[in-house]
């Protein structure tokens, strides 16, 4: 088996006095789809944000695609990464946000083409051609010239997905991408992800509260509580025969709703 594409080793993360991860270990294989479920405040978003380099770590190591994410070699030592290293590492990763975070001053098309053109130096023609393809994939080919504020929540999030894909990341991070949406808009966004993984293989790490979605799409489900993985395994096993009391309680609370 090849080396995992993501590996957390003894990672420590605090916010001031609050310890989120004290000694966190976690691996994701290439092309594996991993869902993270768990109660609010358990550190799910923090995990993704650390990978996207939006949050630093206070100890341990993280490897992404065979290289250290938050450290780099320097004069035979391992030192904290500088901007250049982080810039290189971010090329592996893409993220879709709960609140979309589209650029409101740019059209949908420019939201999608701006980063490939400015960051990767892709030509405008090529970037726009790819944007068209992506907009077709997310079912918004007719919205290329709209501004984000003229779209529904579901449409915004589909643009958010297209924008992340435009950078061709090998790892896609999805943080509760449907939880800011009205219930009737959830499926149009989830369908995009369903189609995406049917057509291409992706390494995907998703935090979700849509249990049925986690169950159908994941190779593995991790139940998180208080900064630790309490239980993990194949979705069928986690959802039908959870072993840990905390997992059972959490899932019962969800089904109860």
């Amino acid at each position: 088996m090849s080396a995992p594409i993501i590996e957390f080793k003894n990672v420590k993360k605090c916010f001031g006095e609050t310890v989120i991860f004290s000694d966190f270990n976690f691996k994701v294989e290439e092309n594996e789809i991993v869902s993270i479920i768990g109660p609010s405040g358990s550190g799910k978003s923090t995990l993704l944000r650390i990978l996207m380099t939006l949050e630093g770590i206070d100890g341990g190591y993280i490897n992404v695609a065979g290289e250290s994410l938050w450290h780099m070699p320097w004069q035979g030592q391992h030192v904290p990464a500088n901007n250049k290293h982080l810039h290189k590492m971010r090329n592996h990763l893409g993220m879709v946000f709960q609140h979309f975070n589209l650029f409101p001053h740019m059209t949908v098309k420019r939201n999608i083409t701006e980063a490939p053109m400015r960051v990767k130096g892709v030509s405008r023609a090529e970037a726009e051609e790819f944007a068209e393809k992506l907009l077709q994939l997310v079912g918004l080919a007719d919205k290329a010239d709209s501004y984000p504020n003229d779209l529904s929540g579901g449409q915004k999030q589909r643009v958010g997905i297209a924008r992340a894909l435009a950078m061709k990341p090998s790892i896609l991070l999805l943080d509760e991408i449907t939880s800011a949406l009205d219930p009737e808009l959830v499926d149009e966004v989830l369908d995009v992800i369903r189609n995406l993984v049917k057509e291409e293989s992706f390494t995907m790490l998703l935090v979700t509260h849509e249990m049925y979605f986690a169950r159908e799409i994941s190779d593995r489900v991790c139940f998180f509580d208080k900064g630790a993985i309490v239980e993990e395994g194949e979705p069928e096993a986690i959802f039908t025969q959870p072993k840990e009391e905390r997992t059972k309680a959490f899932l019962n609370a969800y089904i109860g709703q």
Partner: peptide, 11 residues
């Protein structure tokens, strides 16, 4: 969120 999205897109 605007900063975060622009970091995620590697600007």
């Amino acid at each position: 969120g605007q900063y975060e999205a622009s970091i995620a897109l590697n600007f």
